[in-house]
Write a protein that binds this DNA or RNA. Structure first.
Length: 196
DNA sequence: CGTCTTTGACCCGCGC
DNA sequence: GCGCGGGTCAAAGACG
């Protein structure tokens, strides 16, 4: 089960504060506090997580981050959020302190009516950044821009410019605090990260 | 002249 | 069925 996608490397400029689900809700308080403490201490370090799986896409992300910058990277252990099949599950922070693995079989096919796009590999990062498009080692081509409801800021749509690569990303400023940029990646690159 | 951005139109899923 | 909102297309323009 490729479920852990909680990894990011960032440039020295933006600071990763939290990892969010596709509705831009902060997924895990633990992650948030981890990054908060890193930010406040100003440390520039790499945190090794244990016992997790990382998608190929974010492995590339990590490679780039450690090779090209003095960036801080993070890998986290996926316990109760991530993607299982087509479903995003976020069981953290709720009523239960004991967070347990969600067996796919237990959720079963009962609520299978609204099949949507394959959401695996989609993750959003919220970063403090002056610039809108954070350099992430890939080359992107913009293909759309939309005003979104309840937000004064437009949402920008980008596609990886490598031919045949299915990866897309969305970039928008946080409507609550425009100092922050929310970047949502979707898909897994079918190629190595190009050096620019 | 090739590549990338802009921008309005179009499409589609979803809720009412 | 209809309208709304989000996502994508594609023609035209900008830019190097």
């Amino acid at each position: 089960m490729a479920r852990d996608i909680a990894l990011c490397s960032i440039t020295p400029v933006p600071i990763l504060l939290s990892i969010m689900d596709r509705n831009y809700q902060t997924t895990t308080p633990m992650t948030t506090t981890t990054f908060s403490s890193l930010e406040s201490s100003g440390s520039d370090q790499y945190i090794e997580g244990t016992d997790f799986e990382v998608s190929e896409f974010f492995s590339n992300f990590e490679e780039w981050g450690m090779a090209e910058t003095e960036s801080m990277g993070f890998t986290g252990q996926s316990q109760d959020f991530g993607y299982q099949g087509n479903q995003f599950y976020d069981q953290f922070g709720g009523s239960s302190n004991q967070q347990q693995n969600v067996e796919e079989s237990s959720r079963g096919g009962s609520r299978n009516s609204r099949e949507k796009k394959d959401d695996r590999g989609r993750i959003a990062f919220r970063m403090r950044s002056e610039i809108d498009v954070v350099e992430d080692g890939y080359k992107w081509r913009k293909y759309g821009k939309k005003m979104v409801k309840n937000s004064p800021n437009p949402r920008n749509y980008y596609r990886c410019s490598v031919e045949g690569c299915p990866v897309k990303k969305r970039v928008e400023r946080d409507k609550e605090d425009p100092h922050y940029v929310i970047t949502t990646y979707e898909g897994i690159h079918s190629h190595e990260a190009p050096r620019q």
